[in-house]
Simulated assay, not measured.
Amino acid sequence: MRTWQVGDVMTTDVATVDESTPYRKVVDMMTTRHVSALPVVDDFGRVLGVISEADLLHKVELIGQPHERRFFEGRRRHAARVKADANVARDLMTAPAVTAMESTTLVEAAKTMDREGIKRLPVTDDLGRLIGIVSRGDLLKVHLRHDDDIRHDVVTEVLRRILGISDDAVTVTVVGGVVTLAGRLDRRSSAEIAAQLTLQVSGVVDIIDKVEFDFDDVDPVLYSRGLGNPTGIL
């Protein structure tokens, strides 16, 4: 079962700057290209850092305020002051850059963005060279998959190939990315695995699990006492 990766949704036409790019040109490029961040790369295309709008706004934020270093200055205040004084990309960028590989899953990319508090990830190859960029909005593209494509993956990959379940045992319907599984299997474990794997299919928003089972092999003691079996007979 193939899971969507960063390479499936990333933007490959990426605007970049080098370390010596002046502040004003950085602002102009962001405005012209309608982007909120620019990777900073060296002559080999390797990512050195990223300049975001937040990095640039420190110069506006501290207009009219003294930029001299203060005693007991906090780390954030110091970083803001340094960037407010910066005039080239080298001093404006946040480094090292948090990046992703083309093979990074969308789940991993989303977790990285959340953990690092960032909105985009430069995508690099094995040598650290820029090949694309992925944003939070790009990660949502997986939920634009057609329902028929999602159903195909659930039926052919999850039920047939991985679990060996016949088409007449479980029916699959998909509406708006929500998958409904209905039918009957011999064991509870098979039903639960089918539901768990279905949730991992790219584009699945939620699952409605209506699959019943003949034998509870997950908790057979309760099942044998009749708590999971209306008849109490195995």
Rank of each mutant, 00 (worst) to 15 (best):
Thr3Ala: 02
Gly7Thr: 08
Gly7Trp: 05
Thr16Arg: 11
Val17Leu: 08
Ser20Ala: 11
Ser20Ile: 02
Arg24Trp: 00
Lys25Thr: 05
Val26Met: 08
Thr32Ala: 10
His34Lys: 14
Ser36Arg: 07
Pro39Cys: 08
Ile51Glu: 07
Ala54Ser: 13
Asp55Met: 06
Leu56Ser: 03
His58Pro: 01
Pro66Leu: 03
Pro66Asp: 07
Glu68Trp: 07
Glu73Ala: 05
Glu73Asn: 06
Lys83Cys: 04
Ala84Ser: 09
Asp91Met: 02
Met93His: 11
Val98Tyr: 12
Ala100Phe: 04
Ala100Cys: 12
Asp114His: 14
Lys119Asn: 13
Lys119His: 11
Arg120Gln: 09
Val123Glu: 04
Thr124Ile: 15
Asp126Lys: 13
Leu127His: 08
Ile133Gly: 00
Val134Thr: 11
Val142Phe: 05
His143Asp: 00
His143Ile: 14
Asp149Lys: 12
Thr156Pro: 01
Arg161Ala: 10
Arg161Asp: 13
Ala169Val: 03
Val172Ser: 01
Val179Ile: 07
Thr180Met: 15
Thr180Gln: 15
Asp186Phe: 09
Glu192Cys: 07
Glu192Leu: 11
Thr198Leu: 06
Ile207Lys: 08
Lys210Thr: 09
Lys210Ser: 12
Lys210Glu: 15
Glu212Cys: 06
Glu212Arg: 12
Phe213Gln: 05
Asp216Cys: 05
Asp217Val: 11
Asp219Pro: 13
Tyr223Arg: 02
Tyr223His: 12
Leu227Arg: 11
Gly228Tyr: 00
Gly228Gln: 03
Asn229Arg: 13
